[in-house]
Amino acid sequence: MKKLDYKTYGEFTNELLYLKYDSQIIYEGYTDNLITSVSGDLELKLNYGMSYTSSVIARKSGDYIIWIPKIPLDSDYRYKTIIISSKQFSELWTFLKYKEEDDLEIIKNISADELKLMWMVGARGIERIDDMSYLIKSVKKNINALSTSLEHEDAIFYNLIENRWALKKDEIIEGQDYWKSIIAYLDKGGYEEWEVFKEDNKENLYIHLGNGYCLPI
């Protein structure tokens, strides 16, 4: 499980929060500006230490709380795969003096489309993304080349991009550091490489949702 670190400082009425996930800062600013549920979903307005925010929405899968991208995505939208345990969620909410039970009630179970959104968002180009169809077009246009390993799995790869997911399993697992990465090379956007799949030492293939978290195919 990735580590979640946080601390507050300053006066109570203007309290500042410093929040890190997996050793990377994901929010620094006023505590009251981090969380909202105005849209009907539990939402974090992350800024990654920058002056602008990129919102993520909470979803559930088993014992995980998963923060997914919020569409539409502007060209400067940033996203990092953030998955925490229910225990980490409870500890953070208690630290921030929020009522955990109230917010847990509004968190929906994650859907296959939302898992696909997580998988693809880092491979987008620089266009504004208004829905999944825009995202698919952007990702396909942004792929420069496939690694040799991915060329052998290209049928599975493009099927996952173009079609709706009907997964036999929806259990998210944390991959091992020694698992092989299978990569697509990108033209524009925030990254030059997309870790599409992970492969374990038994040659089992997994969709890589980001940050080491995987989904069995």
Rank of each mutant, 00 (worst) to 15 (best):
M1K: 11
K2L: 11
D5C: 12
G10W: 03
I25L: 15
E28S: 11
G29Q: 13
Y30C: 09
T31A: 13
V38M: 11
K45F: 10
G49A: 05
S51A: 14
S54F: 02
V56Q: 08
W67T: 00
K70Y: 07
P72W: 03
P72Y: 03
S86R: 14
K87D: 12
E91P: 01
F95E: 04
L96N: 01
K99H: 13
D102W: 05
I107Q: 09
K108R: 15
K108Y: 08
S111E: 15
E114W: 08
W119S: 10
V121W: 02
G122N: 10
I126M: 12
I126N: 10
M132R: 05
S133W: 08
S133A: 11
S133L: 10
L135I: 00
I136K: 14
S138R: 05
K141E: 13
I143H: 03
L150M: 01
E151R: 04
A155V: 13
I156Q: 06
F157W: 09
L160P: 06
E162M: 13
D170F: 04
D170T: 11
I182H: 05
L186R: 03
K188M: 12
E193V: 10
E195V: 14
K198W: 06
E199C: 13
K202Q: 14
K202D: 14
N211S: 13
